[in-house]
Design a protein around this nucleic acid. Structure first.
Lengths: 208, 208
DNA sequence: CCAAAAGTGTTCTGACTACACCCATGC
DNA sequence: GCATGGGTGTAGTCAGAACACTTTTGG
């Protein structure tokens, strides 16, 4: 009986908001999918454990990662309280573990089977928080490569909000309010034509 | 070593945002002031423990009470993680415990001596969250009696925000956006003259 | 030639800001 | 009569929403 940490890791994968789940290879809930998590190591902080879990599963460290909520009664008899975190990663930077057992995989949050340990509660809470944070912060910086076109960025917003966005209004907002800036360079491989590339003016979490 | 719960209980007391503190009567940190808190009882939920603590200290139960953040390393050797909550109460409804030992008392958050267990960190975090929640929710319902004048309500907003507010703009906003409604009745004892009384349209936490 | 993505302006509306004076009552 | 608190209107600014077409390139 001790505190456990669970991390909700989001990415956007061809237009779908997706979450990293792990197939349980042991009881309880063997064979079901669950959020990555576990107990704190000796002398480890909560943030430290979350960072470690994220790095283990995706190989990434320098991304948006924030405490979400602390649950009890999540159905795992081993933990009395579960401190949850959520993280946002750019799919292109991740290298998932490829173990056959405890296999991690991305799942669209739209089409989701029931999860182990009431993890749906955690996931719903995280999705809501992500949507509301997207409205007034620059958190999306962590879901995109360092340079990107505004259309890419708009796709990310649409995937999270679940509805289409007006292109011109979107551009005005993010450029006009200084969330992103042009990054001079204008070539991109495989695109339908040359395009302006942008970068976030800040690469840290920021409340606008 | 187990989870503990701490509750930041705010009120507004003659124009000052104030917090309920308890004078510690035993080591560690004997004689210093600390936020009310303690360990979970057997089979108690986190929310349950927070409700119990709030009721113990103030006698109130049906108010705004929400989980805030989970800290570690707060300096109390007894708890590995501390799950904090914050609550908003109407001073008029509270009846503080009057024990001589472990005495509870209201302290303005402006003029505050150092607290036990790094409780300043918790209090700063709670103050910030309160300010930001006040912008886009009706949380103030819990700081006022069920019927009140708009001037009373404005005083509460000013105490929390720490700056004066334009009276006419304030009225337009809260009435126009349907946060409060007139409650017909127009008499009030001890007031300088008859006045319109208002009530919140909803008495539950609500995101606008 | 067709599909896919980049780029671009105007108009309307609703919300927020700033700002100053009168009235009734209790003391 | 004065201090306290209740009550009221206007004009300016800014952000957000709605709205459609052209260009280029790759396949």
């Amino acid at each position: 009986m001790a505190a456990a940490v669970v991390v909700v890791i989001f990415t956007v994968r061809d237009g779908q908001l997706s979450v990293l789940l792990i197939e349980r290879a042991a009881a309880p809930c063997r064979g079901q999918w669950a959020l990555p998590g576990g107990h704190l190591l000796k002398d480890e902080t909560l943030d430290g454990a979350a960072i470690r879990k994220l790095a283990n599963e995706t190989g990434i460290t320098d991304v948006f990662l924030e405490q979400l909520y602390t649950f009890d009664r999540l159905g795992d008899g081993h933990a009395d309280v579960v401190v949850t975190y959520f993280a946002l990663v750019d799919l292109m930077r991740t290298r998932l573990r490829s173990d056959l057992e405890w296999r991690p995989a991305w799942h669209s949050v739209r089409t989701l089977q029931p999860l182990a340990f009431n993890n749906e509660r955690v996931l719903d809470y995280a999705s809501g928080r992500l949507r509301s944070k997207l409205q007034y912060t620059n958190v999306a910086y962590s879901l995109l490569p360092s340079r990107f076109t505004l259309t890419q960025m708009q796709r990310v917003y649409e995937a999270i909000m679940g509805e289409p966005v007006d292109k011109r209004n979107f551009r005005r907002r993010v450029v006009g309010l200084g969330i992103v800036r042009e990054t001079g360079t204008t070539l991109k491989q495989g695109a339908s034509r040359p395009a302006m590339l942008y970068e976030f003016t800040r690469h840290e979490p920021m409340t606008l």
